[in-house]
Computed example of a mutant assay.
Amino acid sequence: METSAPRIHTAPARTILSVSGPEARALLQRVITADVETLEPGQCRPGALLTPQGKLAVDFLLFADGETVWLDVPNAPAEALAKRLSMFKLRAKAEIVINTDLAALWSEHPFEGSAEDPRFGGTVHRGVGEQAGDTVSIDVLEILHGIPAFGRDYGEAEIFPTDVNLDVYGGIGWKKGCFIGQEVVSRMKRRGTIRKRSLSLSFSGDAPARGTPVLAGTSTIGEITSSHGHDAIALIRLDRLEATSEAPQADGQTCRIDVPENLRPDAPAGKV
């Protein structure tokens, strides 16, 4: 019995940037949050460039094959990212190119050259290739799974990477050595001061709009950053959520907040 080919979609508003050459991985390894040296063909890994203050400048998905690393980046910051990487390049043997002939692809099923997006627990597959037949936003699936996105839930230098769970998705290589902003985010983890997380909210009615405060009694515990249908994502203060016995609500609607075990606060650690 023949099986139908997977429906492959082009993700809109995404740019493919490549860093290639014998020193491409070494360049990225010392600059971005993700461990690029261990990235294998057939893998997808989130990553980000931070500001020196540890805030997220831009994030992306990474794919690699040999001496080439592809970055699946939101359109708006793509050109600025290419320029920043070129500044950090110095004499490194690496070429940084915006690939206008390639597209960011996704599907709910594996396809040739694809890799599991680790943020979705195996239900979404990503890749880089020629533009697919249809252009479909992945926003609805991201909101359903509680996955925040640059440009929709946050902007440049607004949040720390841990606020949007980049570390939980495997996007911070804690043991790979230094990267821009590393001292700040490592100190937050080491001291157990990661208090904010992006979490899924579920409502019985339509979820309130971005910017709506999330309350527990009279205390503000967070703010909705995006919503669709009955689902929303909110940046929540975990300490305030755990300290209250009141049911959370937003815009007069009670909601359920899911706090996965891997997003609960860490105890202070000796070293990272």
Rank of each mutant, 00 (worst) to 15 (best):
F179N: 07
G192N: 10
R187D: 11
S202K: 15
T244P: 02
T225P: 06
I180W: 04
L199A: 08
F179S: 08
I224N: 01
L238R: 04
R240D: 13
A209N: 05
E223R: 13
L238Q: 08
F203I: 04
H230N: 15
T218A: 12
R190L: 06
S219Q: 14
D251C: 01
S204Q: 13
A207M: 03
T220A: 10
I180P: 05
L199N: 08
L241I: 03
A232W: 05
H228K: 12
V259Y: 08
Q182H: 15
R197C: 09
T244Y: 07
E223Q: 15
T225K: 10
G181A: 10
Q182N: 14
E246R: 04
G217V: 01
L263T: 09
T212G: 01
Q249A: 13
A243T: 09
R256S: 14
V259L: 15
S219I: 10
R195V: 14
L215K: 05
R191K: 15
P213R: 00
T225N: 07
I224P: 02
R256L: 15
L201N: 07
T218Q: 12
S202N: 14
S227E: 08
T225E: 08
G177M: 10
E183K: 13
A243W: 06
L215C: 00
E183D: 14
D239R: 03
L201F: 09
I180G: 07
E246W: 03
I257P: 05
A216D: 00
A234W: 09
Q253C: 02
R210F: 04
I224F: 02
A234S: 07
E246A: 14
T193D: 06
R256P: 01
L199V: 12
S198R: 09
I236W: 03
G177F: 13
G177N: 11
G252L: 03
A232Q: 08
R237S: 11
N262S: 09
G211S: 01
G181M: 12
G177H: 13
I236R: 06
T225G: 09
A232P: 02
D239M: 06
I236D: 02
P208L: 01
P208I: 02
A209Y: 00
D266C: 02
I194C: 12
S198W: 04
R187Y: 09
S186I: 10
R195F: 04
E246P: 00
H230Y: 01
